[in-house]
Design a protein around this nucleic acid. Structure first.
Ligand code: MN
Ligand code: MN
Ligand code: MN
Ligand code: MN
Lengths: 220, 220
DNA sequence: AATAAATATTAGACGAGACTAATAATCGGA
DNA sequence: TCCGATTATTAGTCTCGTCTAATATTTATT
């Protein structure tokens, strides 16, 4: 087995993440995600392609090979398990774990991840509601939709937060929203895309498009 | 605060470790410890000296500054806390943790270490019997002696294993020896430096000099 | 269809961290 | 005390990961 550097792994993970939304992962998007420059990304894509983790079609982005997907899934698994550990066991806030997990996901030990998984009771979802790939790299996908695609009258449960920037998470905290919270859409404002929602208990409030766009919900 | 790279931290830790035995840490010993070349070490010593972590007297080795000692102690603290976590919580063997801790000690998070410390119940010693520096970097030293300096009739308790190579640890396992085991020295063999010892319960057996040299013991 | 804008790649540079080979300093034994 | 062995440093090279600037390609707009 080839071992990848931290930077290679971060690029691989970025490609994986971008492929969740689109057909292909593009240089500029990878660069944006990793706070780096397009030229650096091109170099990395070449290298990862050479090592067989992805196919790079110059000017048309990158797609993962089976090998690349498998490795990306181990990273996602580690990342989410560590986040779960930090929140469940070390009392971190869900807005405080991303950076650390970004480091911890690169720790390479055959035993560590699986032991951690067992220790945590084989959790299915991380603190942000994202599914944790199992030992075999299998990822249980739920059918969720974005809150901003819901319409008046829908009652839904928050399943996941798809962007884990601390600002968003703290905003949700301040509104009392968390994974599992149940909301009813009361009104949509076409002007700014904001929506008024009413939690199960408590007064209704407004959510901007920026927020509702990043909330994955499932029907209640 | 300056942040150090993994390699810089490993060099710093090597210097710290070597200073426990000697007045000064020498290039070749650091190189041996890190499986690298003397010339690489010289470069690193220069860099660490420039950053104020140590004093490098060319041809006469290195000594840590207060800043260097403080940082080394945070690394030792992290290393030993992670080892404790792996053994106590994830059921790793004491011979399986060093490599992983060697990686984990470089994870940089203001919160993580202290939370982990609390989570583990603020342990005083790691799985190899080595003391864990506290939050302030204070290290409680015990007065121990090496088993190979004991004489016939001495009854002692194993306090620590000073070399954590898996081979040694597994050998100890196979003889039923662990931290806290109580032994009586029965006979010394000048020829090869081996000694016969009798555990509290069970038959006496022999320990080579190589082994007894690395066992730190305290009077029972 | 022509051209401007956006995106991507290539070329060339740089610093970090490693190495080998050459040189220098120190140490230890005769 | 001298000389060879040991240890250390310096000089020069290499790879890796990043950057900027120059160039190329694709895409969007008129
Ligand atoms: Mn990462
Ligand atoms: Mn997450
Ligand atoms: Mn290390
Ligand atoms: Mn230890």
């Amino acid at each position: 087995m080839v071992t990848l550097t931290r930077s290679e792994e971060d690029h691989l993970k970025a490609v994986y993440a971008l492929l969740q939304d689109g057909e292909s992962a593009f240089t500029k998007d990878i660069a944006a995600r990793l706070n780096t420059k397009a030229s650096s990304v091109t170099d990395m894509l070449k290298k990862l392609a050479e090592k067989g983790f992805l196919k790079h079609e110059p000017y048309y982005g990158a797609k993962l090979t089976a090998k690349g997907t498998a490795h990306a899934l181990t990273l996602v698994r580690k990342h989410r398990l560590w986040e779960t550990f930090l929140v469940e066991r070390l009392s971190f806030g869900w807005d405080e774990v991303h950076e650390v997990a970004e480091q911890l996901e690169h720790i390479s030990s055959p035993k560590l991840v699986d032991r951690l998984d067992d220790y945590l009771g084989n959790p299915r979802f991380d603190p942000h509601g994202d599914p944790i790939p199992d030992r075999q790299g299998k990822l249980r996908v739920r059918k969720t939709k974005r809150l901003d695609t819901c319409t008046t009258g829908d009652t839904v449960r928050i399943a996941a937060v798809s962007e884990t920037t601390d600002g968003l998470l703290r905003l949700l905290d301040s509104k009392g929203l968390r994974i599992g919270s149940v909301l009813t859409v009361q009104e949509l404002h076409a002007f700014d895309g904001s929506m008024d929602v009413k939690p199960k208990s408590g007064a209704a409030f407004s959510l901007s498009k920026d927020v509702s766009h990043h909330l994955q919900v499932e029907s209640n």
